[in-house]
Design a protein around this nucleic acid. Structure first.
Length: 164
DNA sequence: CGCAAGATTATT
DNA sequence: ATAATCTTGCGA
């Protein structure tokens, strides 16, 4: 059974941590989530939602458990999952996936391999078995590394990147 | 409407 | 260190 809306409705930092070791299912692919990052709202200058809702960031203010896919640097897609209750902007960026013996380290690489694009934006991951998150391996909190996030210039004080 | 910056990656 | 490549959001 896939993870419910209530799981994603928690604080983004907690969800990001809890997603490590879970299994992402996308079509015929499924892989263990190895790396995530949390992004929040007005308290997080690195977030797309920092300056309030815009056409692009409005998704982060919406229903938890929805996909947020966007194009970065004109060539790579990034997959996020919206978290926290409606009105509380936040999302978790999926940065790493282990598919069998293949390690996809990096949000762009991961989406390229899965053929994941903008057509997969704003999908409810708590409804369809073809695009969802299910239980995976149990990773002890001691084994989860927290560091500052990658590729940003603000909010580096926050240790919101989690890795196995 | 123009423009700079960007949650990246592969290559030099 | 930098090119590739294009959308977004801000300022004018």
């Amino acid at each position: 059974m896939f993870l419910k809306k209530s799981f994603f409705a928690q604080n983004a930092v907690e969800v990001a941590k809890a997603l490590i070791g879970k299994t992402l299912v996308f079509g015929d692919f499924q892989g263990i989530i190895t790396e995530t990052e949390a992004y929040r709202g007005s308290d997080d200058p690195a977030s797309h939602a920092y300056r309030g809702p815009t056409p692009r960031s409005q998704i982060m203010f919406g229903e938890p458990g929805f996909s947020y896919v966007y194009l970065i640097y004109g060539m790579y897609h990034c997959l996020n999952i919206v978290t926290e209750p409606v009105g509380s902007p936040s999302a978790v960026l999926i940065r790493g996936l282990q598919i069998g013996s293949l390690l996809l380290d990096g949000p762009g690489k991961l989406c390229r391999h899965l053929n994941l694009n903008l057509s997969h934006h704003q999908k409810d991951l708590t409804k369809a078995p073809s695009f969802c998150v299910v239980d995976g391996i149990n990773v002890k909190p001691k084994h989860i590394l927290a560091t500052s996030r990658i590729g940003i210039k603000q909010g580096l004080d926050k240790l919101w990147r989690f890795k196995c």
